[in-house]
C-alpha cells in the first residue's frame, strides 16, 4: 500500500513538473532563437503578460481557446515588432528597450484588464487534459506523462521543431551566424536585420504562448502580474541551458521539478522546517547547478550588440 502511494506520489510530481515547466519551455526556447541571433530580449516578462492577457481576453469574449491562442501569438508578434524596431532598426540598447517592454507589458495589461474585464468575475473554460489512447491508461506512466492538456504536450514538438529549425535548416544556420559573425552574413548578401527580426518575432510569439498557457491552460483567469517573474526565470534558463533548445527544455523541466518538489515538501509537517526554506529551493538549486556545471563561455559573441553596416 505504502509503495503504491509513493509511486503515485512520484507520478503526480512528474506530471506537475511538466505542467509547471511548460510556460518556461515556451519562453526560454523563444529566447534561445533571439539570443542566438544576437538579440538579448530581457522583455520576456512583459511579452508573457501580453500573451496571457490577449489570450484570456480573446478566449473570454469568443469562448474559443484556439482564438485565444491566435490572439496571444498576435499580441506577442506586435510586442516583438516594437522591440525589434527599437533594437534592430533604431539600434537602441537592447536591455533598455527590454526594460521598457517589461514596464509596458505589466502596465498595459493591468490597465486594460481593469477597463474591460475586472468586473467580469468569471473565468474561462480552460484546455482540458487530453487522454491518449492506451498510453494514458498505463500504470504510473499514464498519470505521470499522458494526462496533460494540449499545451503541455505541444512543448515536445515545439522543442523538436526548434532543434530542427536551428540546426537543420539554412534559415537556422544563418540565424546563428548572425549572432556570431554578422559581417560574414552581410557580406554574403543576406540581411542581418531581417534575420534578427525573424528571431525576435519567433521569440516573442513563443513567449506570448508561454504566457497564454497560464490563462488558457493552467489558471482560468487573468491576474495582474500573473507571470510572477517567469520571464526572468526563462532568461536564467537560457544561460544555464547554454543557448540550446533541448537544453532549455531540460533546464525548464528541472526548474519545474524543484518547484513541484518544494510545494510537496512544504506539505510534510513532519519536517518541522520553515516553509520558506522550500520556497527558496528552486532558486538555490539553480545557483548550485550553475556552480556544478561551470558554464563554458559559449555565449553568442555578438549578443546584445546592434549590427551597424560599415
Amino acid at each position: 500500500m505504502e509503495d503504491v502511494a509513493s509511486l503515485s506520489f512520484l507520478a503526480a510530481t512528474i506530471a506537475a513538473s511538466w505542467r509547471l515547466a511548460a510556460p518556461l519551455i515556451f519562453a526560454s526556447i523563444g529566447e534561445v532563437f533571439s539570443e542566438r541571433a544576437g538579440v538579448l530580449n530581457i522583455g520576456l516578462e512583459g511579452v508573457m503578460l501580453a500573451g496571457a492577457f490577449a489570450g484570456f481576453a480573446a478566449a473570454f469574449t469568443s469562448g474559443s481557446i484556439l482564438l485565444g491562442v491566435a490572439a496571444a501569438i498576435t499580441a506577442g508578434v506586435l510586442v516583438g515588432l516594437l522591440f525589434a524596431f527599437f533594437t534592430i532598426t533604431i539600434k537602441a540598447d537592447q536591455i533598455v528597450v527590454g526594460a521598457a517592454i517589461n514596464l509596458l507589458g505589466l502596465g498595459l495589461t493591468a490597465f486594460l484588464f481593469r477597463a474591460y474585464f475586472s468586473s467580469a468575475g468569471k473565468g474561462i473554460e480552460i484546455a482540458k487534459p487530453v487522454d491518449l489512447p492506451w498510453l494514458s491508461d498505463l500504470p504510473f506512466f499514464g498519470e505521470a506523462f499522458f494526462r496533460q492538456n494540449a499545451f503541455v504536450y505541444s512543448t515536445l514538438p515545439v522543442a523538436a521543431l526548434a532543434v530542427f529549425v536551428l540546426y537543420r535548416t539554412s534559415f537556422g544556420l544563418t540565424l546563428r551566424a548572425v549572432g556570431e559573425h554578422p559581417k560574414a552574413v552581410d557580406v554574403s548578401g543576406r540581411s542581418v536585420a531581417l534575420y534578427r527580426y525573424g528571431a525576435v518575432l519567433i521569440c516573442s510569439a513563443l513567449a506570448a504562448l508561454g504566457g497564454a498557457f497560464l490563462t488558457l491552460a493552467h489558471s482560468n483567469q487573468f491576474v495582474e502580474g500573473i507571470s510572477s517573474g517567469r520571464g526572468f526565470i526563462a532568461l536564467a534558463v537560457v544561460v544555464f541551458a547554454r543557448w540550446s533548445p533541448i537544453g532549455a527544455f531540460i533546464v525548464s523541466l528541472l526548474f519545474g521539478v524543484f518547484y513541484a518538489l518544494q510545494l510537496q515538501l512544504q506539505a510534510q509537517p513532519v519536517l518541522f522546517l520553515p516553509y520558506q526554506l522550500f520556497q527558496a529551493l528552486p532558486y538555490v538549486m539553480t545557483i548550485a547547478a550553475l556552480i556544478l556545471v561551470r558554464n563554458r563561455v559559449d555565449t553568442p559573441s555578438m549578443l546584445g550588440v546592434a549590427y551597424k553596416k560599415s
Binding site: A100, L103, R114
Partner: peptide
Amino acid sequence: PQVLVLVIQG
C-alpha cells in the same frame, strides 16, 4: 488605475 504610471514610464 495607478498601473498607468508603468505604461508612462515604459
